[in-house]
């Protein structure tokens, strides 16, 4: 199919219009789109896929904006998928994560796409996995996936991302108990954002009883972001080593 080849080529050249359209097709479960993404399968990719999850309003989007600044400084192309919930009643959604990611709007090497869950559970949209593949094929070096603000529900993000960052705000208290069996289980690292708040230290200490990597940040001004990047990098290296070791 000639069309398919053309689209595939445009994706691999990183054509933004093509990337956007293909993601739309995948969201619509369009057979042509599915076929294109299958054919992308064979292409090699080195992309780091990082999941950003955590409670609503913890600062996930703000943190992603800051992480993007750092990755761009390293010359990496950044693709962002921001997932938010669709109303179960009407199917509609207001997707507002990008409001917090406006530092990079004029940077052609940053792509941001908002996705609604469209009834899918687990904090992601059905097409998120495929969208990640499209971004990999389009040459994005880092792919950041923001899940919906999850609470009790265990995140599916662990199946798609290599590194999962759980973002929380100070003042968790008893919630830590509840998190142990859910969010903390999937976390490779925990970010305690809004460290400008007075109760941040207590939360950091409490969490350190359960997870080894706990990093305080102030996403609003970028404090602590480099430590997050370092921890993500360290985890990514560990995966690569394990992978090499196994093969």
């Amino acid at each position: 199919m000639e069309n398919m080849e053309v689209l595939k080529n445009r994706i691999t050249y990183g054509d933004v219009r093509a990337v956007s359209k293909l993601i739309t097709m995948l969201e619509a479960q369009d057979p042509f789109g599915n076929a294109v993404v299958k054919s992308l399968d064979s292409l090699p990719s080195q992309a780091s896929i990082i999941g950003i999850t955590g409670y609503p309003g913890a600062g996930k989007s703000t943190l992603i904006d800051q992480l993007t600044t750092c990755y761009r400084a390293e010359g990496k192309k950044v693709g962002i998928l921001a997932v938010d919930t669709s109303s179960p009643r009407t199917g509609g959604a207001i997707l507002g994560d990008r409001i917090r990611m406006q530092s990079h709007w004029s940077d052609e090497h940053v792509y941001i796409r908002s996705m609604a869950t469209r009834g899918h559970h687990g904090g992601l949209a059905k097409a998120t996995g495929d969208a990640i593949q499209v971004l990999e094929a389009a040459g994005y070096d880092v792919i950041l996936v923001e899940t919906v603000g999850v609470g009790q529900e265990e995140g599916q993000i662990i199946d798609l991302a290599q590194t999962v960052v759980v973002v929380v705000a100070p003042g968790l208290g008893d919630d830590i108990q509840a998190m142990k069996a859910g969010l903390l289980e999937i976390a490779h690292l925990v970010v305690v954002n809004k460290a400008d708040r007075s109760d941040a230290d207590a939360t950091v200490h409490a969490l350190r009883n359960w997870v080894s990597h706990v990093i305080p940040t102030i996403a609003l001004n970028g404090e602590g972001i480099h430590a997050v990047i370092d921890a993500i990098d360290a985890h990514q290296r560990k995966i690569v080593e394990q992978h090499t070791y196994r093969s």
Binding site: I94, G96, I99, R100, Q102, N221
Partner: peptide, 10 residues
């Protein structure tokens, strides 16, 4: 002083 991004309420 820095700048400010609103917390958009929707």
């Amino acid at each position: 002083f820095g700048t400010y991004q609103e917390s958009a309420v929707l």
